[in-house]
Nucleic acid binder design. Sequence first.
DNA 1: GCGCTTTCGCTACGCGTCGTAGCGTAATGC
DNA 2: GCATTACGCTACGACGCGTAGCGAAAGCGC
Lengths: 214, 214
Amino acid sequence: MQSSTPAGRAGRPRSAAADTAILAATRAALVDLGWSKLTLGDVATRAGVAKTTLYRRWAGKNELVVDAVAELFDELELPDRGSLAADIEGVVLQFAAILARPEARSGLMAVVAESTRDEALRERIRTSIVERQKRLVLEGRARAQSRGELPPEPDAAEAARTADLIFDMVAGAVVHRTLVSAEAANGDWVRSLTQVLLWGLTSRPPEQTEPTDG
Amino acid sequence: MQSSTPAGRAGRPRSAAADTAILAATRAALVDLGWSKLTLGDVATRAGVAKTTLYRRWAGKNELVVDAVAELFDELELPDRGSLAADIEGVVLQFAAILARPEARSGLMAVVAESTRDEALRERIRTSIVERQKRLVLEGRARAQSRGELPPEPDAAEAARTADLIFDMVAGAVVHRTLVSAEAANGDWVRSLTQVLLWGLTSRPPEQTEPTDG
DNA sequence: GCGCTTTCGCTACGCGTCGTAGCGTAATGC
DNA sequence: GCATTACGCTACGACGCGTAGCGAAAGCGC
């Protein structure tokens, strides 16, 4: 996103309406055509702007789609649902709902694939999509700690590693379930996932705590 | 893969050497160019075959790359390492090593993205890549059950659901860690992942994690 | 050996998209 | 009004796509 005239700038300002129209047209094109058949000329036509206007704002297909898909994740939030389990299940269901939309399915994986060979693109994805999701993990853990559901973390580095692990497990599982296994991440599945996660995190090795044998 | 003359077939048989040369050239092109810049003409040149030969065997870029990437996963195996934890850690490290290769990174995610709009392609990926991985999960569980590390599953349907969940969690976590978070799935990380998984699976809640009431 | 069949390498082609250049016009700040 | 920037439009060369057509090569059955 590079709209909004940079304050003390002379000349005709860029149309903010064009930005939103282009991003919406990109998502519509993703739904109708998918990533590979999506052409920038088609997007420009759908948005009602000239192709040159599009090229003045985005370097190419990759950057455009990242921005178009990133807006889908704006709706992700973490309301207090009373317990850590409920919080996890809620946000995972939100994430799954986004990934169920065809514009997210085809667009997201494609730009991730491209980002393996484009460090700038990977950074763009990280800041506009991934980092926003990871904040939810940190927020949820802090909330659970204030509830007493999780112990406070003495080691900051260890805490960061654990958060990264949880994030990769949750996001990865939902993405893999939705896009690779191609089955819906419904309530039952999310409950099972949450259960494994919580027990994996709250259990303590037999040396430290009573073994949970039964 | 559609090589090997169909037995009672007349005429000049297809060159098996051409198949392997094309697939190797495809992986080389993935390394050098990535998915989006990979062209079939270039692959044909690298393989030393005519472009028409390539089109006679594969319908397009998608199918070709699936087959080229699928061969990377042939090396996945599950030797008996003595314990369930060691088995998991070993196979996850193998999986991570494959995903660390650039031809897998850029190729795999791209075809998964394309498969969201191409059911036949998704099925091709499933049978030639995903299903082979999932077998390792079932094999590992059976071995752990014979060791007594995991209880036998009374309900077959429930057992299948659990296996699918574990598979999505493990594969998804490694993929997400490697491609999205863009950090290496090294020994420490794999051990942490295994630990969370094992405790999450072997712990049994006395009642249930869900706030059943109140 | 000899035909039949299929594959192979090669060339050439129409098609569509890419990304850019150039131009006249529209919208802002001073 | 004037400078500056964005916009819509057209046109262009470059390139990859996927196919057609050809003669030659390599198998199989006889």
